[in-house]
């Protein structure tokens, strides 16, 4: 188990730093991460953000095409998932009334996976998130 974990860290980390022409070679781990992330998404996130990532008007924001979901502020994304969200903030020009669940029990790997899923599903396409990045982000938001 631990071995798989380390390999994944290595592979996803490499996916992130390798130059583009090598990308096809390292797509597999990202794909696997997205697959695992989907399972977490269906259990933890789908109720609110919906199967198609479209959210619920005025209640839960869409993740599909959301600028911050596709963006590069990964610390923000990790914080949202660990801590949830209860403040009235504007997201892409709209406000939402629901509270987002906190997920303090998800591991760095699970957060990595679910982020890779939401950043690379529906119309979203973004670079891979690595376990190392999530670990570093978690340390920052404590």
């Amino acid at each position: 188990m631990k071995f798989v974990y380390i390999v994944t860290i290595l592979l996803t980390t490499t996916a992130f730093v390798l130059p583009e022409e090598k990308a096809t070679v390292v797509q597999a781990p990202l794909k696997a991460s997205i697959e695992r992330g989907k399972t977490i998404y269906l259990q933890r996130c789908m109720a609110c953000h919906q199967a198609d990532g479209g959210g619920v008007p005025r209640l839960n924001p869409p993740l599909d095409a959301a600028s911050k979901v596709k963006g590069n502020d990964k610390v923000y994304l990790v914080r949202v998932i660990i801590k949830g969200m209860t403040e009235r903030v504007e997201l892409d020009g709209e406000y939402y009334d629901n509270n987002m669940s906190a997920n303090p029990d998800l591991t760095d790997m699970q957060i990595t996976d679910v982020l890779n899923y939401i950043r690379n599903s529906w119309s979203n396409k973004a670079n891979a998130v690595t376990v190392a990045e999530v670990k570093a982000a978690r340390a920052k938001i404590k």
Binding site: R44, G84, N99, M100, S101, N103, P104, D105
Partner: peptide, 15 residues
């Protein structure tokens, strides 16, 4: 009620 089920942390598994 500004809450789903009056959990210590709203809508959070295990709370």
């Amino acid at each position: 009620a500004p809450s789903n089920s009056c959990q210590e942390t709203d809508r959070t598994k295990g709370s």
